[in-house]
Write a protein that binds this DNA or RNA. Structure first.
Length: 502
DNA sequence: TGTAACTCATTG
DNA sequence: CCCCCAATGAGTTACA
C-alpha cells in the first residue's frame, strides 16, 4: 500500500484541531500570524482549576472547546482516512498525558556531580557578572596569541577580526571553519592546530557555562530532578518541542549528572535508524525493509551494495546516501550517491521525490496518519512566481527548492514522530498493566528525545522493562504499518548514569 | 533604551 | 565531512 504524500488536504476543522505547530515564528519575513492563543505554561499542572486569587483567567472556554471537538469529530468522520486520523488523535492525546507525567516525574539529576563537573572544567563558581577563572585566563591567552589585547572572544565580530589579522583566513568563527583551516595547513597543520586550540577550548567552555552552567542548575534543577516542559506536537512535523532548559539538547558532556539513586536504575532505550525504517514502511519498499531486518540498516545496505557492486559499499556511504535522500542533499557525496540509491530502492526514493516535487510547487504533503504540512505564505508564492530577472529567477528556485526539502523531510520526520508516540503509548500501557500483582510497575518514563526514551525505576524491574520497551516498539510498528516487513530494533541499556548509555 | 535579527553550539 | 531536515537558547549586534 503505497502512500501518496501529496494527497489532498484535510478538512479545515481538523486542521485547526490538529495543531499546525509553531513554524510561523521561525519563518522570517511577513508579520507573525499569531492566530494561536498564548500557550498555557506546561509547568502549570492544573488544566481545570482556576487559580483561586487570579482575576478572570483567560481559561478554556468550555463551549468553544465543545464546538471544536464537534468540528473535529465531523471532520474525521468525513475523511476517507478516518481510521488513521483517529489513531493520530488518540496518539496525540496519549502523548499529552505522557508528557505531563514525565514533567511531573522529572529526570533524576545529581546536582553535586554536575557542580563537580563544572568546577573541574571551569574552576570555582565565579561572582555574578564575571567569567569563570579558566575562561578568563584562556581569553587573555587568546588575546595575546592573536596579538589583540582587550579581545572579547564572546563577540564573533571581534574574534573574527582578531583571527584574520593574525593570518587565520576563515570566513566565520565556527568551530568547523577553524578546524578546516587547520586541516588545510599542509606542513603547518600542527602549528595551526596549536594556534586555534585555545580558541576552541574557550568556545567549548563558554557553551558549557552559558547553556548548562550554574545558572542553569539554579533555574532548572529542583530537588535533584530536571522537569522537562514538553510541548507535544510543538514542532511543525509533529515532533515534540520543549520549552525551557534546553531539554532536547542536553549535551553529552553533562549527562553524567543524570544518576540513579541506590537500588534504582535508568533504562535508556534508543530506536535505531528510525527514519529510514519509517521510509521503508510507508513507501512499501521491500528491499529497504529487508535490508534492515534483524540488524543495522546501514550495514544491511552496505552488504547489498557489495553484492551488487554498487558504490554503497560501506556503512558510512550508505548512511550518508540515505540521510541525503531524506534531507534533499544537492551536492557532495550524498548527492553523488543518489543514482545508486535509486537503483537499489526505487520505491522508497520515489516517495521522497514526490514529496519534494509537491513542496516545490507550494503543495501540501501529509504523514502516514494524516498530519498535513503547512501551505507557504503569500510572499512565498509571489517570490516563486516572480521570474522577471535572472536574480528573481534564482531566488524563486532557491525558495522553491528549500520548501521542497522541507516537505521531503516532513513526511518521514513526521511519521517517525507518530511511531515514537505510539511506541511510548504502548510502553505506558504495559507499565501500567505489568508487574507481579497486576497493579502496575513502579518504573516510570522520565525523559524523551525524538527516538529515545529514558525510564527510571527499581533495579528489580529493569529486566522486565527491557522486554516492555522492545515489545512496545514492535507493537508500534504493527499498529501503524500492519504486517509490513519492517522492524524497529532498539539499543537498550540499564545504567546507573545516563553517560554510560550509548 | 528596547526589540528584532543574527551567530554559534547543541540535540535528534 | 559539515552539505542537506527539525529544533532551543544565550549572547551580540543592528536599528528604530
Amino acid at each position: 500500500m503505497p502512500a501518496d504524500p501529496a494527497r489532498g488536504r484535510e478538512p479545515a476543522g481538523l486542521r485547526r484541531g490538529v495543531r499546525a505547530g509553531r513554524r510561523d515564528r521561525a519563518r522570517r519575513g511577513g508579520a507573525p500570524r499569531s492566530r494561536a492563543p498564548p500557550r498555557a505554561d506546561p509547568g502549570q499542572a492544573s488544566l481545570f482549576a482556576a487559580p483561586a486569587a487570579a482575576p478572570a483567567p483567560a481559561g478554556p472556554d468550555v463551549a468553544a472547546l465543545v464546538r471544536e471537538l464537534e468540528a473535529q469529530l465531523r471532520a474525521v468522520a468525513g475523511s476517507p482516512r478516518s481510521h488513521r486520523l483517529n489513531l493520530l488523535l488518540a496518539a496525540e492525546s496519549q502523548g499529552g498525558l505522557i508528557a505531563a507525567e514525565m514533567h511531573h516525574e522529572g529526570l533524576p539529576w545529581n546536582r553535586g556531580i554536575h557542580e563537580q563537573l563544572l568546577e573541574q572544567m571551569l574552576g570555582p563558581r565565579p561572582e555574578e557578572g564575571r567569567r569563570p577563572a579558566r575562561m578568563q585566563s584562556l581569553a587573555e591567552h587568546v588575546g595575546r596569541v592573536l596579538g589583540s589585547e582587550r579581545l572579547n572572544p564572546d563577540s564573533p565580530q571581534d574574534l573574527l577580526r582578531a583571527l584574520n589579522s593574525a593570518g587565520v583566513r576563515v570566513g566565520t568563527t565556527r568551530k568547523w571553519d577553524l578546524m578546516a583551516w587547520a586541516a588545510q595547513g599542509g606542513a603547518q597543520t600542527e602549528e595551526r592546530r596549536e594556534l586555534i586550540r585555545p580558541v576552541l577550548e574557550y568556545k567549548q567552555l563558554y557553551r558549557l557555562w552559558t547553556a548548562n552552567g550554574w545558572h542553569w542548575l539554579d533555574e532548572w534543577i529542583r530537588e535533584d530532578r530536571f522537569h522537562a516542559a514538553y510541548v507535544v506536537g510543538g514542532v511543525v512535523t509533529g515532533r515534540w518541542a520543549a520549552h525551557g532548559g534546553g531539554a532536547m539538547q542536553i549535551p553529552k558532556t553533562v549527562r553524567d549528572a543524570v544518576r540513579a539513586e541506590p537500588g534504582h536504575v535508568l533504562t535508556v532505550a534508543d530506536a535505531s535508524q528510525v527514519e529510514p525504517r519509517i521510509l521503508a514502511a510507508m513507501s512499501g519498499d521491500r528491499a529497504l525493509a529487508v535490508a534492515g531486518r534483524g540488524h543495522d540498516l546501514y550495514l544491511g545496505i552496505a552488504e547489498i551494495g557489495q553484492r551488487t557492486g554498487s558504490a554503497l559499499k560501506d556503512r558510512q556511504a550508505a548512511k550518508i546516501a540515505l540521510l541525503g535522500a531524506m534531507y534533499g542533499a544537492t551536492s557532495g557525496d550524498a548527492a553523488a550517491m543518489m543514482p545508486h540509491l535509486r537503483r537499489l530502492f526505487p520505491t522508497a526514493i520515489e516517495l521522497v521525490e514526490r514529496a519534494a516535487a509537491a513542496g516545490e510547487r507550494g503543495g501540501q504533503v501529509s504523514t502516514w496518519l494524516g498530519r498535513t504540512s503547512p501551505v507557504p505564505d503569500e510572499a512565498w508564492f509571489a517570490s516563486v512566481r516572480d521570474v522577471g530577472t535572472a536574480q528573481a529567477e534564482s531566488r524563486s528556485r532557491t525558495l522553491s527548492r528549500s520548501h521542497g526539502r522541507f516537505t521531503r523531510n516532513f513526511v518521514v520526520q513526521g511519521t517517525a514522530a507518530e511511531w515514537a508516540l505510539c511506541w511510548m503509548g504502548e510502553i505506558r500501557r504495559r507499565l501500567r498493566s505489568g508487574g507481579a500483582d497486576g497493579a502496575g510497575m513502579r518504573t516510570r518514563m522520565v525523559f524523551f528525545v525524538h527516538d529515545e526514551v529514558v525510564l527510571y525505576g527499581p533495579e528489580e524491574e529493569a529486566e522486565a522493562v527491557h522486554g516492555i520497551v522492545a515489545d512496545a516498539a514492535e507493537a508500534a510498528g504493527r499498529l501503524l504499518f500492519g504486517d509490513a516487513p519492517v522492524d524497529f530494533p532498539l539499543t537498550v541499556a540499564a545504567v546507573g548514569s545516563y553517560a554510560e548509555a550509548k
